[in-house]
Design a binder for these strands. Sequence first.
DNA 1: TTGCTGACCGACG
DNA 2: CCGTCGGCCAGCA
Length: 111
Amino acid sequence: MRDISFFQSVYEVARLIPYGRVTSYGAIASFLGSKGSSRMVGWAMNATHHLPENIPAHRVVNRNGLLTGKHHFGGSQTMQELLESEGITVEDNQIQNFANYFWDPAKELQL
DNA sequence: TTGCTGACCGACG
DNA sequence: CCGTCGGCCAGCA
């Protein structure tokens, strides 16, 4: 994976998430080769806040499709509104029909 | 420099 | 079924 660090890889994958699609921390971590480093993906998403580039961190949720990180998007329903704005149905902080919107980098990118 | 913590996930009892 | 624990890498005191 080039000379970039794990963090950099997370950012690139996050930017590659298509409009109206979502993925999970574990999927990204597994795609990067470190399945157990799913926590680092979430931490990387936290770092996107101070990044100059626009990272669609709202498209990254946990394995259950639950918006665990919505509290970090300004402490409001920003994350949910962004997802709904992309045509994704979110109810009770959980993505409805999650499997339909799920975007697996290892599968879609097919490297 | 050492140690804790963090937007998770999977295994075990 | 539900509670607990370990693991992963990077940032910060």
